[in-house]
Amino acid sequence: MSTEGPDLVCEVDNVQGIVDALTAVRWKRQQDAVVELSEHGMVLIVEESSCLQAKVYLQRELFIKYEYGGAQGRPRFGVSLGLLVNCLNTFSVPAGGRSSSTIEIRYPGPDMQLLLNLYLFANSIIQIEIRCYIVFYILRSVDSLDACIYAEIRTRIPETISWDYNFEPAGTTPLSFTVKSAALKEAIDDLEWPGSSVQIILQPDPPSVTFKGEGHGDLQIDFMYYVNTDLLIAFSCDRQVSYRYKYKFLQATTSNIPSSVIRDNRGSKLTIGRGGMLKVQHLVSVARPSIPHPHVDSAGYQQPSRIAYIEFFVKPEEDESTIND
């Protein structure tokens, strides 16, 4: 039993938003994630075959309470992403449609666990234990009922991240573009048909982005900057670049994009860094649940936008048929 306080105690009032954000990086059933805690918030990292890495940033602003105990170094633990998402999902059950729920997250618990507590009103408990030795306790009260939901998820000692995803700019002018998330997803979904690899070409004149799939057939999707500024919202490129990415990795970046992102008509930013490393950024709203809380929000009060940032890093394919510099 540790004598000091927990490294982290925080509360979330939008479980669904967190579930959405975490689901966005869930591209297969079994995925091991590493969670890193700091005074700025929580970062969840998943990766695959040293070619694809995704990070979900849950900054402290997303929490209605965030007390970081100032541990030396950043505490990290490994957890099964699928289990964490499924478990959090059980906490997003509407409580008879009356109220939203609030999860309390604690780390570590008495046995070095990470604890998640989810409160609705008074005295209900959801508890998640993550052994080895981290536990989530989620406490949740269900209306005036004496009811609680609890969960404990076991964690692992995290493996070291096998590949350093230091993303460096490719030059003085960033090579980037911002496209409507829905359009990006649609384009990448369409590219499934040609097959295994997709070439992304950025060129300054005319300013455009091209996705080109070659395999069972050819498919080329062009986003012209001046033709449709609604679709391609921003564009920055001073020279033509072209890199190939494995389709399955590219697909992972949009396959589970939350429906709220599409609904909110958000954009995704894609940046090509040194060596062709592709960074894909999405924004997921973790806003307070839409049910108004008369006792919390006075009229005219605008809640600051609460956004979870999601980043994917995709390594280009080795075989260089690429035109670069």
Binding site: L83, C87, I128, I130, E152, R154
Partner: peptide
């Protein structure tokens, strides 16, 4: 082995 999730209703 990895997770415990439950709900309790009292009284």
């Amino acid at each position: 082995t990895l997770i415990t999730v439950g709900a309790e209703f009292q009284k």
